[in-house]
Design a protein around this nucleic acid. Structure first.
Lengths: 200, 200
DNA sequence: AGAAAACGTTAACAAAAGATAATGAATACA
DNA sequence: TGTATTCATTATCTTTTGTTAACGTTTTCT
């Protein structure tokens, strides 16, 4: 995808948070950069401070931890979504997980340095503070729902809910990654799927 | 506690996010109000939009959902912490859970309306946007850790971690609430405690 | 002070999940 | 194209959790 199309997609994608005037957008875009990831390439790795947040114009990534030598996938992001090792990015602390491309992925990126510059730029500061706030609030709401699911639902209920709200994820992501995401083992997810199928 | 002491505690409590100059603080405090909750009194209830966020100067609250007629406790907040039905507050949507005082609790409160006024106040806007952003970022980091715990740890590991980092919570909150918080039943938590005790 | 409610533990049983291994199918890759 | 990997399913066995109920203690409330 050419850069103009990517920028256009980015501009549309963030209207849920903030809308820039043409002048503001002109300034804003001078702080952006572009990148792409081959399949299995990493956007963030454990132990390093994550210096970028990115908007995915094409592709998909997974977030995973390593525990006892095992990879455990905790989350996914797809095209038209923002991505970052949030905690590491905002707190400037070493990242504790990995972000890896599941497919060939294209990104529009903002570096931490450029973000700080924008937060100090008289014409952008207020809007960028708001942008940051609204992004964070958006993700808080996502997290709230996710934690609620872990607290109030059984693995089977979480699976059924996912199937209903984002069933197409099963066509795009290996099932054992989704199992981790649901907080269970791949074997267990396979059993749940069989169980819930037989009930119909 | 008298209002001056509460304000002082509030001002100190939020230095982790933002520091106000004396002039700013003077303006800021005109937007605040005070309240208290008797034990078992609710700060927020299901179905109503939450109109306040609050700083707890004394006391403790629990957040709970009702599922199949059963209360399920998802979180706690204590003195010197912020509290709100965040999603409902920022999105102006009906709240889907309850927040109830566990003890006699005292609050410094900001209404949604006043917050909006501050966000439009020329002398406060930028700082309030930043305040909001940093609060949201703080809670995102908390949530990130919590979800990671559900994904990567067993109930027993989550219990052990809680015992280590906030063991005093057991002196303050009924155990069956903590069980819910850990994502398990009270019976199961009782067994885990016995198990981990016998290992020493 | 006395009755009622809330709470933590334990037991017994059922249901679900974890661990490990084997199998066959699909996919990736050289 | 052919080989190696990856992947989902299934089976077996063990461990853990959920469910329900009983019991005694503590706390709450009038």
């Amino acid at each position: 995808m050419d850069k103009q199309s990517q920028l256009k997609a980015f501009r549309i994608g963030i209207t849920q948070f903030v809308t820039f005037s043409d002048t503001e957008w002109e300034i804003f875009t001078t702080y952006l950069s572009f990148s792409s990831l081959n399949k299995k390439e990493h956007f963030a790795v454990e132990g390093k401070v994550c210096d970028y947040m990115a908007f995915i114009t094409r592709g998909a990534v997974r977030y995973y931890h390593i525990k006892d030598g095992q990879e455990i996938t905790g989350y996914f992001s797809f095209e038209n979504e923002l991505m970052s090792a949030y905690k590491s990015f905002v707190k400037r602390t070493p990242n504790r997980n990995y972000i890896q491309a599941l497919e060939e992925t294209e990104l529009v990126m903002i570096s931490y340095q450029h973000l700080q510059q924008m937060l100090n730029h008289p014409l952008l500061a207020l809007k960028m503070e708001r942008f940051g706030r609204l992004i964070a609030e958006y993700y808080i709401c996502c997290y709230e729902d996710r934690v609620t699911a872990f607290i109030t639902q059984s693995p089977e209920e979480r699976y059924t809910a996912l199937e209903k709200t984002a069933g197409d994820i099963f066509q795009r992501v290996p099932q054992h990654f989704i199992a981790n995401f649901l907080g269970i083992t791949p074997v267990s997810l396979s059993r749940i799927r069989k169980r819930t199928l037989l009930q119909h």
